[in-house]
């Protein structure tokens, strides 16, 4: 039982990673892609925080001057604090780009197809102007 529970968090990390990654690749809606990216990143947070846990430990904040208690590892927590902030920064920038795309194209779906269609359109236009 504990053998399975001991790896459970890592399997959830894999599942969440896969769910988020799938949304990033397969969903054509740009907001959906960003949601998927957030899930993907949250999975990584879980990976790091799980590896820092110590059985019977507490949060690495010393209470009543007792430095000898069992504490979980502070370093992964510090790294993930950074990663969370990086995540929200990327999300904010991504959303700003989505808003601009919506204003420029009128849609946030299948934007690749529209953009490459525009390229063909351009070539046709220039072809006409040649004659």
């Amino acid at each position: 039982m504990s053998e399975i529970l001991g790896l459970f968090n890592y399997w959830v990390f894999v599942l969440l990673m896969v769910i988020g990654f799938y949304a990033v690749i397969a969903k054509p809606n740009l907001i959906k892609k960003l949601l998927g990216l957030s899930i993907f990143q949250a999975a990584v947070f879980l990976l790091f925080i799980s590896m820092g846990k110590v059985d019977g430990g507490t949060a690495p904040i010393i209470q009543n001057g007792n430095w000898d208690a069992v504490f979980s590892n502070p370093l992964p927590q510090v790294l993930i604090l950074t990663a969370i902030v990086v995540g929200i920064s990327t999300l904010a920038l991504g959303l700003a780009i989505v808003v601009r795309i919506k204003e420029a194209y009128g849609t946030i779906e299948e934007i690749d197809a529209i953009a490459s269609g525009e390229a063909t359109q351009l070539q046709q236009d220039s072809g006409e102007s040649k004659q």
């Binding site: 947070f45 507490t58 979980s72 927590q77 969370i84």
Partner: peptide, 10 residues
């Protein structure tokens, strides 16, 4: 998982 700071931030 004993990550109080991370929980608060998340």
């Amino acid at each position: 998982l004993d990550a109080a700071d991370v929980a608060l931030t998340e």
